[in-house]
Design a protein around this nucleic acid. Sequence first.
DNA 1: TAATTGTTTCTATATGTATAGAAATAACGA
DNA 2: TCGTTATTTCTATACATATAGAAACAATTA
Lengths: 111, 111
Amino acid sequence: MFKALGDPTRLRIFTFLQAQCYPIAVETETGAVSPLSGPTVGEVCCHVTGDPVVTSTVSFHLKELRQAGLITTERSGRHMICGVNPDAAGRLIAFLNDGPAERKTNDDCCN
Amino acid sequence: MFKALGDPTRLRIFTFLQAQCYPIAVETETGAVSPLSGPTVGEVCCHVTGDPVVTSTVSFHLKELRQAGLITTERSGRHMICGVNPDAAGRLIAFLNDGPAERKTNDDCCN
DNA sequence: TAATTGTTTCTATATGTATAGAAATAACGA
DNA sequence: TCGTTATTTCTATACATATAGAAACAATTA
């Protein structure tokens, strides 16, 4: 995950998706939960390059983010809808927090 | 910061430092705060390579972590004492959290 | 079915970066 | 001052990866 977010283009995409489509379940009139909606790949590309044409580079970065478990992509007709993985940020935060929790002694060191 | 933690060796070093020397200010008998103490570079090296001899590779990774603001190094006699930067994890966590806070509309997209 | 739109995979290339050995620097003790 | 210990910087190399163009694939509409 850290490696995936280490690339500036991918971090840009991830924060864009966080802002655009952080998945908040919304109740509709019927009480159902609205489907996870967000930008298409074209819209992501648009934000990154300023041009709505989808480049192989953006597609590659989306794949990396998906494989790292940071985002999801889902086909909807002719489009692919992108969204952040709801527990991605939580997992990273947990990792950053539990350092001191699993604190060890210096006995582990070989000196 | 994400890029620095993206390398497996550096993530190993960082979590080791988090576990070994997470900087908790400790009051001494005189009321003073104990100095930030932690492993030396040799001890870090030992944890990473199993050998207390300091390699240029570990030194390089420590420099990267330092330049990313994730750790601190401080000379103490012949040794360099390593420690995590106290607000490094906090800054990352804040970044991961404020995505939805700064949520924007789809109007930003050029389509 | 053919054409069109949206997206991904393939292949190549250029840049970045992790690693390793050797030389250099810094602090301490004899 | 000289040698020893601890660590960093230098230089080169091998590997990883971001990028780009072209071809392939998938779903929709005419």
